[in-house]
Computed example of a mutant assay.
Amino acid sequence: MTSATPGPDLTDPAPDVAKLDLTGSVADLTRALCDIPSVSGDEQAIADAVEAALREVAHLEVIRDGNCVVARTQLGRAERVVIAGHIDTVPIAGNLPTRTLDGVIHGRGTVDMKGGVAVALNLAAGVPEPTRDVTYVFYDCEEIEAVRNGLGRLSRERPELLQADFAVLGEPTSAVVEGGCQGTMRVEVTTTGTAAHSARSWMGSNAIHHAGAVLDVLNGYRARQIEVDGLVYREGLNAVGISGGIAGNVIPDRCSVLVNYRFAPDKSLAEAEAHLRELFGAWEVTVTDASPAARPGLNAPVAAHFVAAVGGTPGPKYGWTDVALFSGLGIPAVNFGPGNPSLAHKDDEHCPESDLTTCLDALRRYLTG
């Protein structure tokens, strides 16, 4: 028997600003956040709602920067931790509004990563005197190209807002600690030919046909599994797009295969690029987007203390997250949040309410213990 419950009531306290209850059920808060559409680049409505709710919390200093909202305690503690989460999602696929079935919340953003944002907002309002100072960061444009990432913008333009001894990203991890992250690089591999009328194809050279050799390289590629600081990372190299041709009666003289490389944290960006240029040395290779990997960093005392506080056995993070940004700033960071990461971006994205409460309770222990 399945039972469905209606979504939370979103009553506007002011025109166009949804009201969020930060102190009630973390499940209801997750649904309220998810039911505010916020596809990357369109986060103003949810940023407005988050800002309005946080400004009602007396013990927090709240700062708005574009569609990033920062809230922090200023208690003079010896240590400061950042708890961060992005408020954007990939495009909606008929999976909003949310619904709850048998204790599982279904809908876009439940996993990636408004469940983690809900946990952080509940903590921000509900833990007024943590044992370490906390900076909560809710940021935009994580799901698209790195140059637009709101956390990256803060690191460049307002670095003082990210100063900390440790950072926790509320990315989905099924409520266990995941260390480090894969790096990601996208390149266009371009084949060339000679244009001709398709009625006289023998007078040209078809660049799309030549792309078959690029696909052969990808089909024959054997991705590594590599241990880094005690965690095993799996790599991946895949075509994620292909384009070529200008008309239905023209033999194309150019074709580009878009390739995404997910690499383990034993490689730098330069080493990842060199690997791809070696693989596709017969063709023109253009890097279109890249973000570095991050080593697990679990041997840092602040990270080890966090793992001890929340419990569980750490694993590797498959995928890129902003732990890499914190790592680049010299701040140890881990991923810890509700939801199964294998469901991120899927049309049937869903998160158990139990994951939300597990993460909330664990982080509250860490902040108050």
Results as ranks from 00 to 15, higher is better:
residue 128 P to N: 05
residue 234 R to N: 12
residue 56 E to S: 14
residue 256 S to Q: 01
residue 183 G to W: 11
residue 76 G to H: 11
residue 167 A to Q: 11
residue 29 L to M: 13
residue 266 D to T: 05
residue 255 C to D: 01
residue 281 G to T: 02
residue 216 D to R: 14
residue 59 H to E: 07
residue 364 R to M: 03
residue 81 V to M: 05
residue 227 E to Q: 12
residue 75 L to W: 10
residue 184 T to H: 07
residue 276 L to S: 11
residue 41 G to Y: 13
residue 3 S to R: 15
residue 364 R to V: 00
residue 210 H to P: 08
residue 3 S to T: 15
residue 350 H to I: 06
residue 17 V to I: 15
residue 14 A to W: 14
residue 267 K to I: 02
residue 136 Y to D: 05
residue 311 G to T: 14
residue 31 R to D: 12
residue 33 L to C: 03
residue 346 K to Y: 09
residue 273 E to L: 06
residue 168 V to T: 08
residue 369 G to L: 01
residue 300 A to E: 15
residue 305 H to N: 14
residue 4 A to I: 15
residue 204 G to P: 07
residue 25 S to V: 03
residue 135 T to A: 11
residue 198 S to E: 09
residue 262 R to T: 00
residue 273 E to I: 05
residue 145 E to N: 11
residue 256 S to F: 07
residue 127 V to N: 01
residue 199 A to K: 06
residue 223 A to S: 01
residue 172 P to C: 09
residue 88 D to N: 02
residue 269 L to G: 03
residue 1 M to T: 12
residue 238 N to T: 05
residue 22 L to V: 12
residue 275 H to W: 06
residue 237 L to A: 07
residue 15 P to T: 09
residue 165 D to P: 04
residue 221 Y to T: 07
residue 145 E to A: 09
residue 212 G to W: 09
residue 347 D to F: 06
residue 47 A to F: 01
residue 127 V to E: 02
residue 180 G to Y: 10
residue 270 A to R: 14
residue 302 V to E: 15
residue 113 M to F: 05
residue 110 T to H: 13
residue 70 V to L: 11
residue 251 I to E: 03
residue 183 G to H: 10
residue 239 A to C: 10
residue 44 Q to F: 06
residue 54 L to W: 04
residue 97 P to I: 08
residue 313 T to I: 14
residue 158 R to T: 06
residue 179 G to E: 03
residue 119 V to T: 02
residue 12 D to S: 07
residue 319 G to K: 08
residue 162 L to W: 11
residue 222 R to V: 14
residue 100 T to D: 10
residue 102 D to Y: 10
residue 148 R to T: 11
residue 152 G to T: 06
residue 284 E to A: 08
residue 153 R to A: 11
residue 50 V to S: 04
residue 285 V to M: 12
residue 13 P to L: 12
residue 143 E to G: 05
residue 158 R to L: 07
residue 294 A to F: 02
residue 206 N to R: 00
residue 275 H to G: 05
residue 87 I to E: 01
residue 190 T to R: 15
residue 125 A to F: 04
residue 253 D to Y: 03
residue 339 G to Q: 03
residue 292 P to D: 04
residue 113 M to A: 01
residue 90 V to T: 15
